[in-house]
Nucleic acid binder design. Sequence first.
DNA 1: CGGCGGCTTGAAGGACGTCAAGATTAGTGG
DNA 2: CCACTAATCTTGACGTCCTTCAAGCCGCCG
Lengths: 240, 240
Amino acid sequence: MDPGEGDGDTLRFCTTCAFGEVCLPGGYDKRALQELHCLVEHVGPFRAGDFLFRSGERFESIYAVRAGTVKTATIDEEGREQILGFHLPGEMIGLSAIHPARYPCDAIALDTVYLCRFSFPALSTLATRMPGIQQQLFRLLSADIGKAALLAGDYNANERMAAFLILFADRLAARGFSATRFRLSMSRGDIASYLRLAPETVSRILRRFRDDGLIRVDERDIELLQVDGLRQLGRCVLNH
Amino acid sequence: MDPGEGDGDTLRFCTTCAFGEVCLPGGYDKRALQELHCLVEHVGPFRAGDFLFRSGERFESIYAVRAGTVKTATIDEEGREQILGFHLPGEMIGLSAIHPARYPCDAIALDTVYLCRFSFPALSTLATRMPGIQQQLFRLLSADIGKAALLAGDYNANERMAAFLILFADRLAARGFSATRFRLSMSRGDIASYLRLAPETVSRILRRFRDDGLIRVDERDIELLQVDGLRQLGRCVLNH
DNA sequence: CGGCGGCTTGAAGGACGTCAAGATTAGTGG
DNA sequence: CCACTAATCTTGACGTCCTTCAAGCCGCCG
C-alpha cells in the first residue's frame, strides 16, 4: 500500500486525520473545503531516521501524520537526547513552534512516513474565514498542552510505563487499529528517554509486567493481556 | 493601591498584560479595540486560598492576571496535590481547558488577586474578525505547550531549582519588576510540588545555593547574587 | 502561653541510574 | 545462505540522588 503519488484514496487517510472532521465533506460549504484541500501538500515518503525538520529551523508549516510514526526530540547542552513525543497517523506535529516561530525540536521518522503539510500562515488566514478551522486549531493546541501531563507529573516508573502502554493502545484504537496487539515502532531507548527513565529500567519493568501476566512481549510486539490491571497501575497518570 | 472598581488606570494594568499589544491603542482600529474592551470583565479581589475555578467545572472563560499570583494544581487519585504552574501579573490562565471544555485543574489565589476575564466563545468569535487577536491566541497557546519543558525534562534537583529561580526572575523582569530581588508568593511546599521534589529537598538546595553565595534567602524574600552562576546551573533546562 | 503550620536539619531507606557483561538481532558483504 | 560486526536489548551488581521519617525551630494567632 503506497499512499504516495497516486492519491487515489486521499479520503481513506483523511478519515484518520486530526483535521478530518473539517476536511471531509460534512455539511461544510464545498468551496471552503476545496480551499483547505488546495492548501494541503502531501509529502513523503521519509525513511527511518530521516529528519522531517530540525530544531532551530524557521517555522512555516504544521504537519499531520498520514502513515508511519514520528518522534520529536531535543538535544540538550550535554548532548543527551530527550524524546518529547511520538506521533501516530492522524496526529499533528509542529504546533509548539508557532510562538518562537522556530521549531523547538527535531522531528525524526521511525519508519516509513507520509505527511500532510499545512502552511501555517495560509492556514491561519483561512481560519479567519472558516470558524470551524479556527476552533479545530484552538482545540489541537489546547490538547497538546494537556498531553505534557504524562511526562510532567511526579510518577514512578511503573505508573509511567503502564500509562504509556494504555495511552499508546488508546491512540491506536482511536485510529481503528487493534487496542490489544500492536508493534512498538520505537526502540526501548526511545521509550526510556520519553518516560525519563533508563533503558535498563524499561527493560526490567516490561519483564515484571510480563511475569505478572499483564502483557506478552516479543521484541517490539506487545499484547495487552490485562488492560484493566495496567489501567489501574497507571490510574494517577491517566486521570489527568 | 486598589485595581478594583475604580478602574481609573485600566491602562496601567493593560501594559503588563498578555493581551496588551492588541488591547492597547497601537495603530489598531478604534472600534475593534472597543469591542475587545467591552468583552473584558474585571473580577476580584480574591484572597489567598480562594478558588478562581475548580477542576471539572465547565470551561467558559480564560483569565489574565491583573495583580497577585495564582497557582494551578490537580489532585490525583491518591489525594496528592501537583502544582502545574504559577501565574504572575500579565499571564494567562485557562488555555488548557479549551479542548476538553472543562477546566483540568484548580486555580487558587496565593495572595490578593485581580483578574481580567475573557469569555472564550466571544473572544474566538472576535478573533475571526480581528486576525491580530487570533494570532495572539495561537501564540499564547503555543507558548504554553513549550512551558511544560521545565517539568517534563529529565533534570536533577539543582538544575530544576536554579532554572525555577531564573525563570521566575525573568518573568518578573518582563513585567517591570526587579529581576534580582523579589518575594516568593508561594510556600516551599508549592515550589517542591511544582518541581516534583520533596519540600525537604527544596530547603536543602536553597541552603546550598546560599552557602555557595549564589543567593540570599530570608524566608520568602530572595536575592539573586550570581545570576550567571544560576543560569549556568540551569542551562540544560533553560535552553529548551 | 500554647498550639499550629511552615520551614529546616539530620539520619536512614529505597527507587532508579550507572556500570559491566552477555545475549539476541539486524545489517552487510561475500 | 552464511560469516561478521554493530546495535539493541537483557540481566545482575553496585552506587547515588532523592525521598521518607523524625525531631526541633520559628513566626503567627487565638
